[in-house]
């Protein structure tokens, strides 16, 4: 209620200001000749152009420098180093053009204000100038395209054969991950087999699925290529790991992938940032519904040997959910239990 009063009050004040301006302008109209150009306001506007240029320039430079570390997230992947380099090359080139053109725009506005005694310079065209500012941007942009495409091709090229294959799947509203287990092969899935427990819709008639395991976080080895197999099961999501400069949509019915090499463990990053609670995260960047902003997945990067140790301690999903053994075709059950590391006696 208080706020409402405040707003109404604000509007009233605004109205009063408007009325005052109006009265003053009506008076000035009455005094002035009709078609004459109002020189004083022309001067004020011209000056404001210059002031805007200077003030905004100073504020931008000051803010960009003083908060540099806040908006530049530390890089945690090999290709991230490349994209960041490209980013800053682009920043320097476009920044130069940006500053130059804005300075010219506002300075000319200020400099060439109306003056009755002067005529504007009749300058309808000049082919030389036109050619210069067609060719120069074209060359600069070509350079950027060449660097950009080669970077893009490096990143999106084929994943190395020895990559660690991990699956990540988005659904409303969480991420889940799946590791291939001892056989290093992810088992088949079928979305019709999904239920409240079997989030991935694992198809246990495929023996590769028996030893797949699903930790609650995404664990990654440092220094080894990781191939993320990405999918979604309801609407489009998008895997975004800001520190790894990694983003790829998760599309229902169309699996996608992204490979990268983590270069810093979580521990190393904690030291680097001086933040003991630092954690890598994955967020969703494609609008997926009410809980879009809550889709967080914790990412942990280990040293390679720690990663292997961690993997060895993980129990296959089937072993944690033995009820599903009854759904496996009779002749495969024994194999499944062996693969999942369940002792045959338990049954």
């Amino acid at each position: 209620m208080m706020n409402l009063v405040l707003i109404v009050g604000g509007l009233l004040v605004l109205t009063i200001i408007i009325a005052l301006v109006r009265v003053s302008s009506l008076i000035s109209v009455a005094r002035k000749e009709r078609t004459k150009i109002d020189k004083s306001s022309n001067k004020v506007n011209g000056l404001l152009m210059l002031i805007f240029l200077i003030v905004s320039g100073v504020v931008t430079i000051w803010y960009s420098i003083s908060t540099f570390d806040d908006y530049n997230l530390p890089i945690a992947s090999e290709h991230g180093l490349e994209t960041d380099r490209l980013f800053w090359i682009t920043m320097v080139i476009t920044g130069f053009i940006f500053v130059l053109t804005n300075i010219l725009l506002f300075y000319f506005s200020f400099r060439y204000q109306y003056n009755e005694d002067r005529r504007a310079y009749f300058f309808p065209d000049n082919n030389k100038l036109e050619i210069i500012w067609t060719v120069v941007p074209a060359i600069v942009l070509t350079l950027l395209v060449i660097v950009g495409i080669s970077t893009w091709n490096d990143i999106t090229g084929k994943a190395p054969k020895d990559s660690e294959v991990i699956e990540i799947m988005g659904f409303q509203f969480a991420w889940v991950t799946r590791y291939p287990g001892k056989d290093n092969k992810l088992g088949n899935y079928n979305y019709r087999l999904i239920d409240a427990e079997n989030l991935f819709g694992l198809d246990f008639s495929d023996r590769n699925a028996h030893d797949d395991f699903m930790p609650r976080e995404l664990h990654l080895p440092k220094g080894k290529p990781v191939l993320l197999k990405i999918r979604a099961r309801d609407v489009i999501h998008s895997v975004f790991a800001p520190h790894f400069r990694l983003k790829m949509d998760a599309v229902p019915g169309m699996p996608t992938q992204f490979w990268f090499v983590p270069i810093k463990t979580t521990e190393e990053m904690r030291v680097e940032t001086g933040n003991d609670e630092f954690n890598y995260e994955i967020a969703c960047t494609e609008l997926c519904g009410k809980g879009h902003f809550t889709m967080r997945l914790l990412v942990i990067v280990h040293e390679l040997e720690d990663y292997e140790k961690w993997k060895a301690t993980q129990q296959p999903w089937l072993a944690k959910n033995p009820d599903y053994i009854s759904k496996i075709p009779e002749e495969m059950r024994e194999l499944a239990m062996i693969n999942a590391g369940i002792s045959l006696d338990e049954k």
Binding site: N42, L105, Y114, T134, L141
Partner: peptide, 24 residues
């Protein structure tokens, strides 16, 4: 490529202001 004609437009606007007799 589409950035090139956009850049031309900007340069032409700025040149139009150059040595004009600007009424705000």
């Amino acid at each position: 490529i589409i950035a090139v004609p956009s850049a031309i437009k900007v340069f032409n606007y700025i040149t139009t202001l150059w040595r004009g007799n600007i009424i705000f």
